[in-house]
Amino acid sequence: MLKQIRPAIVMIVATTVLTGLAYPLAMTGVAQALFPHQANGSLVEKDGKVIGSSLIGQNFTSDRYFHGRPSATTAADPNDPTKSVSAPYNAANSGGSNLGPTNSSLITRVKGDAATLQTQNPNMPVPMDLVTTSGSGLDPQISPDAAYFQIPRVAKARNMDEAKLKSIVDASVESRELGVLGEPVVNVLALNQALDASMKQ
């Protein structure tokens, strides 16, 4: 019996050390050496202080800034831990609302959001990604159409020329990966940083 137990224990220990310790440490070392920015969370700094990540959206609410997609993430209610409250872009609780397309709450919210947005720019149709949440609730990007749609509101709030603002959005559009993968997008945090920087010039 010991003949069978000993090799089994040796194999368990060896594979644990190899796959649970050596491999993760090697991959961490390679990532830190070749891609340190990405390996450390793609953090964005301003004046030496971390203000976010290029991979996780933020809840911009001021009219002076471009807004991202709605987020359905939640957090525990501080007054009652058995309940949850809305906490947009909560990276600790990534997820969607799981509401189906016929859900009355979802329909009511989307219609209300669309009506509000339409008052801000009645000359353009409301882009879908400005009223629908993603599966993760953390999307840092919006479509170029969603960014262009918000130009009148942001320009008015900042008393800024719309043509100048459009040029900032144009410069913030990220093209398809390798020219063919995915769709063009705009990173909302990067766009808002570029917007603030343009006001200092």
Rank of each mutant, 00 (worst) to 15 (best):
M1N: 10
L2H: 05
R6E: 04
P7A: 04
A8T: 12
I9E: 06
V10A: 03
V17N: 02
V17R: 01
G20K: 02
L21A: 01
A22S: 06
A26R: 06
A31K: 04
Q32N: 15
A33K: 03
A33E: 01
F35W: 15
F35P: 01
Q38T: 14
N40A: 12
V44Y: 03
K46I: 08
D47F: 14
K49C: 03
S53G: 08
S54H: 02
L55P: 01
F60Q: 01
F66P: 02
H67R: 10
S71M: 09
S71L: 09
T73L: 09
T73A: 04
T74W: 13
A75P: 00
P78R: 10
D80T: 04
D80K: 06
P81R: 04
P81T: 05
P81W: 02
K83Y: 13
V85K: 02
S86D: 08
N90M: 07
S94E: 09
S97F: 08
T102F: 08
T102W: 02
S104D: 14
I107W: 07
V110L: 11
K111L: 13
A114F: 02
Q120A: 14
M124P: 00
M124Q: 11
P125S: 12
G135Q: 04
G137N: 09
L138K: 01
Q141Y: 14
Q141A: 11
I142S: 07
I142T: 05
A146G: 12
Y148L: 07
P152A: 14
P152D: 12
P152E: 09
R153N: 05
M160K: 07
D161T: 03
A163S: 05
S167V: 07
V169N: 00
S172Q: 06
S172A: 14
V173W: 04
E177A: 15
G179F: 13
P184N: 04
L189Q: 03
A190V: 05
Q193W: 06
Q193P: 06
A194T: 00
L195G: 01
A197S: 07
K200F: 14
